[in-house]
């Protein structure tokens, strides 16, 4: 079975993950009466408007009141419905963290939290809107499942999986168009990473937008005679410990890559496991303890060193440390 789209390096199809979310919601609405969608004055931006047009009675726009959205979603979940609460990443994590902590995570309610507009690729709106801390904020919460899909197709699968999954779940999506990497056939299972490319010298563990850059990096490394494995770690929590340990054992060196603060994100999660169970050298690509700025998505990926060349650099570094 082919997991990866053809031609992704020359001419990838470009689609935003938020579109995958919007499409999946409509599909879900058709097959599951229990699906309720909530948003806070950003229906079009998060693509919840597509669901709203088809199922106006199961869609609620709460206005600019995110904290209340989490409380209301909780109440809805207690009435045996499946609420998807969605807004920009900043406003569905940081702004409402205590509501999530008590009502969703502590109470283990069946609330689905979907963030669009995450990371520096939010672009021109700048730092206030570019959440770089949400993975950390969500993964630290007990009972929370955290998913960062790498593309449009994977987003659809993640949304379907979230609807079937019982319990709290956070899904991190993006605003900008991103390369379509995975095929319709590629399997998706919460908590199970995908080996998108095999290799023996090093493993690149990536999530979200950085999966594409990781694949590009592996391609470049191949030309340098370095064989890199690429793991699409779409579930940050629960982390796929087995695949990670296997990768550490076989390749002996790890590079993590994410569009998030290095502190608390995917890299930290990987290090927490490996440092205790098989401490191989790790290098981490991500945001280095700073805020975002305005610019285009493309400019900012380069500005913050989130490109395949940066990953190649980190691989060279980690290989020097490899015993």
């Amino acid at each position: 079975m082919k997991y990866i789209q053809e031609n992704i390096f020359n001419n990838p199809k470009m689609l935003p993950t938020r579109d995958g979310f919007g499409k999946a919601l409509v599909k879900l609405g058709e097959i599951n009466e229990k699906i309720i969608v909530l948003t806070t004055d950003v229906a079009g931006s998060v693509r919840a408007n597509w669901f709203a047009e088809k199922f106006p009675k199961r869609f609620f726009d709460l206005g600019i009141a995110e904290q209340n959205m989490i409380s209301v979603a909780t109440g809805i979940s207690l009435e045996n419905k499946i609420p998807f609460a969605t807004t920009f990443g900043v406003f569905i994590t940081g702004r409402v963290w205590d509501q999530i902590r008590v009502l969703v995570s502590y109470s283990q309610t069946n609330v689905k939290l979907v963030a669009t507009h995450t990371g520096v690729t939010v672009g021109e709106d700048g730092a206030t809107h570019q959440i770089l801390e949400d993975i950390a904020l969500m993964r630290v919460l007990p009972n929370m499942t955290v998913i960062v899909p790498s593309d449009f197709n994977e987003t659809k699968k993640a949304i379907f999986a979230a609807a079937d999954f019982k319990g709290p779940i956070y899904i991190r999506l993006g605003r900008q168009k991103a390369p379509l990497i995975t095929t319709d056939d590629a399997p998706f299972e919460i908590g199970k990473s995908q080996k998108l490319r095999d290799g023996n010298d090093v493993t690149i563990v990536a999530c979200g937008v950085l999966v594409y850059e990781a694949l590009l990096a592996a391609e470049k490394l191949n030309k340098l005679g370095i064989s890199a494995r690429v793991l699409n770690m779409h579930t940050i929590k629960p982390l796929d410990v087995d695949s990670l340990l296997e990768a550490a054992k076989t390749t002996g060196a790890i590079v993590t890559a994410e569009e998030h603060q290095i502190a608390g994100g995917l890299g930290s999660a990987v290090a927490e496991v490996l440092s205790q169970q098989n401490p191989v050298p790790i290098e981490m690509i991500g945001i280095n303890d700073e805020f975002g700025i305005s610019g285009t998505s493309d400019q900012l990926l380069t500005y913050y060193g989130l490109r395949s060349d940066n990953i190649v650099g980190s691989v060279k570094k980690v290989l020097k440390r490899k015993r």
Binding site: E124, G126, L300
Partner: peptide, 13 residues
């Protein structure tokens, strides 16, 4: 306004 490295961020800094 809103350009890379500008002081005029998308939202006021």
């Amino acid at each position: 306004l809103r350009k890379l490295r500008s002081r005029l961020q998308g939202h006021p800094n």
